[in-house]
C-alpha cells in the first residue's frame, strides 16, 4: 500500500474543483485547456483554466483526471494553487511545488505531480497559441523512452528541476525507463551530461543565471549573511518585483533572520486574496531556487 499523506487522501476523497468550466456569454474571460497523458499510460489529466483576458489572471481552475489516488489529489492541488495567479506566475509552478503542497508524494508517484505541471504548461501554451509540439520537440527532443513516449528534453528538465541523480528516480518522476527498461542506459548518460553541464555553469558564471534555474544548489559554498541578503534583494528586484508590478502590486524586503525572509506586500498584492499563494509560489519558490532551499517567506 502506498504511504500517502493526509492531504493526499483528503483531496482524493474530497476533491476540489473537479469538472469543466463553461463561460456562457461571460465577457472578458476565456477558457484555456491543457491535456496530458493517455489512457494507455494509465493516467491522464485535462485541466481547464478560466482566464481574465485583460489581466491574464486565472479566475478559476478545474480538472478531470483518469488515474490513481495521487493523480487525482495532484490535479486537485494544482487547481487550488493556481487560482488567482497570473499566467506568468502560474508558469513558475513546478512539480515539486505540487508535491510540497500535498505534504509530499511517494517517490514512485512523483510522476503524478509532473503530469499536473505539464497540464498547466499545456493549458497556458494553448491559450497563448504556442504550439506544444514545437515546444516538445525543441532541438534535443529525441524520443528516449518509447514505452511512455518521453523525450530527451523532458527527461533533462525533470532531472534539472528535481535534482535527480539516478535513472530510477527519473522513472519515478516521468515513467521513462519503467516499461521495457531498454532506455535506462540512455537515461544514465543524460544524467551524466546534465551533471557535467551544471559543473560548467558553476565554473563559468559569476552571477546568478536569470533564465536558467540554478541546478547546482548542492555544490555551492555557503553564503555569508551579507552575501545572502544581497542575493535575496537582487532576486526580488530582478525577478519577483517586475512580475508583481505588472499586476499592480509590489514587495519590499523588510528583514532577514537566518532562513526567514520577512517581506511587506504592497499595492494590489497587500489586498489580494491570493497573497498567500503569491508569497509561496512567486516569492518563496524563487528564493528557494536561487538562494537556499530552506528559505521561508513571511509577510510582515
Amino acid at each position: 500500500m502506498w504511504d500517502y499523506t493526509e492531504k493526499v487522501l483528503d483531496l482524493f476523497y474530497n476533491p476540489k474543483n473537479q469538472g469543466e468550466i463553461t463561460i456562457a456569454g461571460e465577457a472578458g474571460v476565456k477558457v484555456a485547456t491543457g491535456e496530458v497523458g493517455s489512457i494507455a499510460c494509465g493516467d491522464a489529466l485535462r485541466l481547464h483554466l478560466k482566464v481574465e483576458v485583460a489581466t491574464d489572471k486565472i479566475l478559476d481552475a478545474r480538472f478531470q483526471t483518469f488515474g490513481c489516488t495521487s493523480a487525482i489529489a495532484s490535479s486537485s492541488a494544482l487547481t487550488e494553487m493556481v487560482k488567482g495567479l497570473t499566467l506568468d506566475q502560474a508558469l513558475l509552478v513546478t512539480n515539486q511545488d505540487i508535491a510540497n503542497y500535498l505534504g509530499g508524494l511517494p517517490e514512485a508517484k512523483m510522476h503524478c505531480s509532473v503530469m499536473g505541471q505539464e497540464a498547466l504548461e499545456a493549458a497556458i501554451y494553448n491559450y497563448r497559441g504556442i504550439p506544444l509540439a514545437s515546444h516538445d520537440e525543441d532541438d534535443e527532443g529525441a524520443l528516449i523512452c518509447t514505452c511512455f513516449s518521453i523525450s530527451d528534453s523532458k527527461i533533462r528538465r525533470v532531472i534539472a528541476e528535481n535534482h535527480l541523480t539516478t535513472a530510477e528516480q527519473v522513472t519515478n518522476y516521468v515513467k521513462a525507463g519503467g516499461g521495457c527498461g531498454s532506455c535506462l542506459a540512455k537515461i544514465d548518460d543524460i544524467i551524466n551530461e546534465v551533471k557535467q553541464e551544471n559543473a560548467k555553469t558553476t565554473l563559468h558564471s559569476n552571477s546568478v543565471p536569470n533564465t536558467q534555474k540554478s541546478l547546482n544548489l548542492g555544490q555551492k559554498k555557503p553564503l555569508t549573511n551579507v552575501q545572502k541578503i544581497a542575493l535575496i534583494q537582487k532576486v526580488l528586484d530582478e525577478e519577483v518585483r517586475p512580475v508583481l508590478i505588472a499586476d499592480g502590486g509590489d514587495v519590499e524586503l523588510y528583514d532577514v533572520e537566518g532562513d526567514k525572509v520577512k517581506v511587506v506586500l504592497q499595492g494590489a498584492c497587500s489586498a489580494c486574496s491570493s497573497s498567500t499563494a503569491t508569497l509561496k509560489i512567486a516569492i518563496e519558490a524563487r528564493l528557494r531556487d536561487r538562494v537556499s532551499p530552506e528559505i521561508i517567506v513571511e509577510p510582515v
Binding site: 469538472g19 497523458g37 478531470q64 483526471t65 513516449s149
Partner: peptide, 18 residues
Amino acid sequence: RALSPFKNDDAGWLQQQS
C-alpha cells in the same frame, strides 16, 4: 467516473495520443 475525462470509447485526444 465523474472525475474522469473519459466517458466513452471515442475519447478523441486520448485515442490519438495512445
